[in-house]
């Protein structure tokens, strides 16, 4: 039962870390919005899905790559990858801002119940995924291979592939940039102020609407970046791909302590590793069950998350 895990421990670990960083970025989309609004950004999974399409559209339609064309090299490779990343982030960021405007803003201004907001967010995520389904004819969309999946080296019997390495380092870099932003920038401080005490923040001259829009934007950018890495590693997307990713990333956010940025980091990595190890031991089909059981147990016994500091204990 454990042979696979023992045999391939290191390659599993590397795959888990790469997957974990993708989770980290998507769960930022949940955790940041939750920190500010104390609400689940239900549409984040679809924001991610739109990001993945942004990535593919860039390489396929702007740079003219197809499934059969040769991967890029040299400066061209850097240009294409960078454009893909930017496009994915832009698409997702704008989608997130759109979601905030359409689904959250009016209800928040009215100060009405949280359930209405939740359903409104559910509505907008149905709109987003259905729109993409119609645009793509319900078909999966493959991505042209831009980055050759070269095996760079072998460490302890594990193949280190280029795309994995790029994902791990670039995603980590983006995560730390965002963390710096929230920690040091003026807007970042405003975001944290609002998440700690909305009223006090308002009284100190923080423009609440701008903070919330920015929060959605930043969360969207992170989620969009994740979309790019996801495509780079898995090279495929579909209109309903958001659901599984959303569930996992959300779980990661909760594991780390939702509302807490550092928590998303730990939670994402933990979940990524847990998933690959669990599939090696129990088989891929039980992967999701393991994740949920861990989630339920964590919530029952450490409801503030495994790594998080206490957020609020009661949320009506």
């Amino acid at each position: 039962m454990f042979e696979v895990l023992i045999d391939q421990f290191w390659s599993l670990t590397i795959a888990g870390v790469a997957l974990g960083f993708i989770y980290v970025l998507v769960s930022l989309g949940y955790t940041m919005v939750y920190g500010v609004l104390r609400m689940i950004n239900f549409a984040n999974s679809e924001i991610f899905m739109w990001g993945t399409f942004g990535t593919i559209v860039t390489s396929r339609d702007i740079f003219g790559y197809s499934q059969t064309s040769a991967p890029a090299t040299g400066p061209k490779l850097a240009l294409v990858l960078f454009s893909q990343l930017l496009m994915s982030m832009a698409v997702a960021g704008l989608t997130a801002v759109f979601v905030e405007f359409v689904a959250y803003r009016r209800l928040r201004a009215k100060g009405t119940n949280r359930l209405a907001t939740l359903i409104s967010a559910i509505g907008i995520s149905i709109v987003l995924s259905e729109l993409m389904r119609l645009l793509t004819d319900s078909r999966p969309v493959g991505s042209p291979r831009v980055l050759e999946k070269i095996i760079l080296t072998e460490v302890w019997g594990a193949n280190i592939r280029l795309d994995t390495v790029v994902t791990i380092f670039a995603a980590a870099a983006i995560y730390f940039l965002l963390e710096r932003f929230v920690k040091l920038s003026r807007m970042g401080k405003a975001i944290r102020a609002v998440s700690m005490n909305e009223d006090a923040a308002k009284l100190m001259g923080v423009n609440l609407n701008r903070v919330i829009t920015t929060t959605f934007l930043v969360g969207g950018l992170a989620t969009g970046a994740a979309g790019f890495f996801y495509i780079t590693v898995f090279e495929y997307t579909k209109f309903n791909i958001g659901f599984t990713m959303g569930m996992a990333a959300f779980t990661a956010a909760v594991l780390g302590g939702i509302g807490n940025i550092r928590g998303a980091f730990y939670g994402g990595l933990f979940l990524g590793l847990l998933e690959v190890y669990a599939s090696a031991v129990l088989g891929t089909q039980w992967k999701a069950v393991t994740v949920f059981i861990v989630l339920v147990l964590v919530l029952l016994f450490k409801p503030n998350g495994l790594f998080g500091e206490a957020v609020q204990t009661t949320r009506a």
Binding site: I119, S120, G123, I126, E130
Partner: peptide, 22 residues
Amino acid sequence: SDARLLVFGIVLVVVMNFRPDG
């Protein structure tokens, strides 16, 4: 036909925004 779920989503958003208590 195909757009019916899309319309459904729009209806949810609109109704919740204008009649948040249902």
